[in-house]
């Protein structure tokens, strides 16, 4: 037993921020996700690509707990979270965003982010004083907003924001909780080229120690942000490697990259 060497499997187990083992989910007779085994090392930046219907978002739902897998397991920093409720996973440092933005549309930006800030604290249940009087939480929320350019929009309801700003707010809601592992579901979906600049800047500015798994079709965004890419097709993991490796892979090109990417976004 080579306990000392840092390349031993046991050691790698400890290093993986997120580990999927033979993860699967069936809907009726269809395997939306099938036997996916993937280890995401701590601090790494992972991209997940694949044609529409490849099971990317389903995989995210299994990771965040919104769906229960029909087989396999999920570990977060070595801890089995396969059957844990979504809010418990969030408390363990797993945050996610959604492809279809889910912000609190009729609440203001400040209210949105304040909800996120209170989310992991006991104070979310306190009833005795106004939430605006929790100055540390409110300041923290305002800080998060201003770091990423929504600082001047604090008192505007989410439905009055532009599409790009809503996407930023979506990411900020999750970032406000300081996750250790962040799952991003197409953060740049539906954005104009100009709006993409903002979200790319936001993604690049994320703290280095954050582990990031991102579903994205836009190769420019991917190249910008991630190092490794996993390719899903019909629910199965086809290959993984660096961005360059994946881009050069013939099977992948045939599957996915061969098609004009305009059609994907």
């Amino acid at each position: 037993m080579s306990m000392g060497a840092h390349e031993t499997p046991a050691r790698q187990d400890g290093q993986a921020a997120l580990r999927m083992t033979k993860l699967g989910r069936r809907f009726g007779g269809i395997d939306a996700v099938k036997d996916v085994s993937l280890a995401v090392p701590k601090g790494s930046r992972f991209g997940v690509i694949g044609p529409n219907g490849a099971g990317k978002t389903t995989m995210f739902n299994l990771l965040s707990g919104e769906l229960r897998p029909t087989s396999g397991r999920v570990e977060l920093f070595g801890r089995n979270i396969t059957r844990l409720a979504p809010n418990r996973r969030v408390a363990l440092g797993l945050g996610r965003t959604y492809q279809i933005t889910r912000v609190f549309r009729d609440l203001t930006v400040l209210e949105n982010i304040t909800l996120a800030v209170h989310g992991l604290r006991k104070s979310k249940l306190s009833m005795l004083r106004p939430w605006r009087s929790y100055s540390t939480a409110v300041e923290e929320a305002a800080n998060v907003a201003s770091t990423f350019g929504l600082g001047e929009r604090l008192n505007i309801t989410a439905e009055e924001l532009s599409h790009g700003e809503v996407r930023e707010l979506e990411v900020l809601l999750t970032l406000a909780q300081k996750p250790e592992v962040l799952l991003l579901d197409e953060p740049a979906a539906g954005l104009s080229p100009a709006e993409r600049v903002g979200i790319r800047a936001l993604l690049r500015s994320l703290p280095r120690e954050l582990t990031l798994v991102m579903i994205e079709h836009d190769m420019d965004v991917l190249r910008d942000v991630v190092e490794h890419v996993a390719v899903l097709h019909f629910g199965e993991l086809v290959m993984q490697g660096t961005v360059a490796e994946v881009q050069e892979d013939a099977t992948v090109q045939e599957l996915y990259l061969g098609k004009p990417k305009v059609a994907e976004s």
Binding site: S64, E66, P86, N87, V90, A91, R96, Y98, R102, V103, F104, R105, D106, L107, E111, T114, L115, A116, H118, G119, L120, S123, K124, L125, S126, M127, L128, R129, P130, W131, R132, Y134, A137, L173, Q177
Partner: peptide, 27 residues
Amino acid sequence: TLVSSPFGLSMLGIRSNEQRLRTLGYR
């Protein structure tokens, strides 16, 4: 007092988008 408290804010969040609130750590 209740409706303006963090708990009251969470009620607004539930009304607005309960599923999202759950993924922000709320039971």
